[in-house]
């Protein structure tokens, strides 16, 4: 008798339990015992797994020193860039170690979308005009979608407007053009270190010699290493696999200094030209004998199109 009763009450307890659950389900999470703190913690954990976090600030600016970085100007943002190189340090005290002279590039970049940036520029070197676009194909991310690297494509066209020297052959208008096609592969390893590889092809519509190819291949490598909250060490090297002839590989080292909304770049480089064709394939300076320029890049951004729902509160 005892056992019978016991079994029956056990069954009944089960019934109560089932009934309670069935009753509670439609009112999910309304029970008196609901603890929002716990509920939120659990949800946050779930959300973290569901969310893809796109890695930002792989580099601090859209240019590393002379060349492009993986970074784009944000959508609706206009970036006025002044790239300035003093003369070569080894020109001596008479030229105040290069500070008497200057070459520069004035540029305007604009972000059409967060993935697509376009820009135009004018350089004093060979009186060149240039235009480029840069498109982000892949974005490094963590979380739900894991992507180890970012990849961008950059295409630059350069028009040399410097008057031609007298030649024995006919020079056409199109002969003043050169182009650079670059694939930028970048990875931010952590907040302190990022690296990028830039396989590049520079095409000249005309070259000086039959021996020289019109398509010149090179490989660029660049890094940034964080020294402090506001200062990053940067470096850039372009190795020329095929050469225009007699030119050096571009090598630069400098600092990115962040000042509020801007990045100020100070560096030494052996390249005089500032657009892709000229610094990758026409670098003349030699580091070993002081053939380097001191230089700086200043960038000032203007918001042209405000992001939706963002920004100013007044």
């Amino acid at each position: 008798m005892e056992t019978y009763n016991h079994n029956r009450s056990k069954k009944l307890l089960w019934c109560i339990a089932l009934f309670s659950i069935a009753y509670l389900l439609p009112h999910s999470a309304v029970a008196q015992t609901t603890d929002l703190f716990k509920l939120q913690d659990e949800q946050d954990k779930k959300d973290a797994k569901e969310k893809t976090d796109i890695t930002t600030s792989i580099f601090k600016s859209t240019r590393l020193i002379n060349g492009q970085t993986i970074e784009n100007t944000g959508a609706g943002i206009l970036d006025l860039r002044i790239s300035h190189r003093f003369g070569m340090v080894n020109t001596g005290a008479y030229n105040f170690f290069g500070l008497d002279q200057a070459t520069m590039r004035l540029g305007l970049d604009y972000g059409i979308t967060n993935r697509l940036e376009v820009g135009i520029g004018r350089s004093t070197f060979n009186k060149e005009f240039d235009g480029f676009f840069k498109y982000r194909i892949l974005r490094q991310s963590t979380g739900k979608t894991e992507m180890p690297i970012s990849i961008s494509l950059a295409e630059t066209g350069v028009w040399r407007s410097l008057k031609d020297p007298a030649t024995t052959y006919q020079i056409n208008y199109s002969d003043h053009f050169s182009f650079a096609s670059q694939l930028i592969l970048a990875r931010k390893f952590n907040d302190y270190f990022s690296l990028q590889l830039i396989p590049t092809m520079v095409h000249y519509n005309i070259v000086a010699d039959k021996e020289i190819k019109n398509d010149l291949y090179s490989m660029g490598v660049g890094f940034r290493a964080r020294l402090s909250r506001r200062v990053n060490l940067t470096g850039e090297y372009y190795y020329q696999i095929t050469q225009l002839g007699g030119y050096k590989n571009s090598a630069s080292v400098g600092f990115d200094i962040e000042t509020g909304g801007h990045v100020f770049q100070l560096f030494f480089t052996n390249s005089t030209g500032i657009n892709e064709s000229s610094f990758i394939t026409q670098t003349q300076g030699l580091w070993s004998n002081g053939g380097v320029h001191f230089g700086f890049n200043i960038s000032r951004v203007f918001t042209v199109v405000k992001p939706k729902n963002a920004g100013r509160t007044n």
Binding site: T56, S57, K60, T73, G74, I77, E258, G260, G261, H262, V263, V301, T303, K306, P307, N309, A310, G311, R312
Partner: peptide, 12 residues
């Protein structure tokens, strides 16, 4: 979201 993207990067 900031109006200035660089500011947003620095904030983060």
């Amino acid at each position: 979201k900031f109006e200035n993207q660089l500011m947003e990067d620095h904030f983060n």
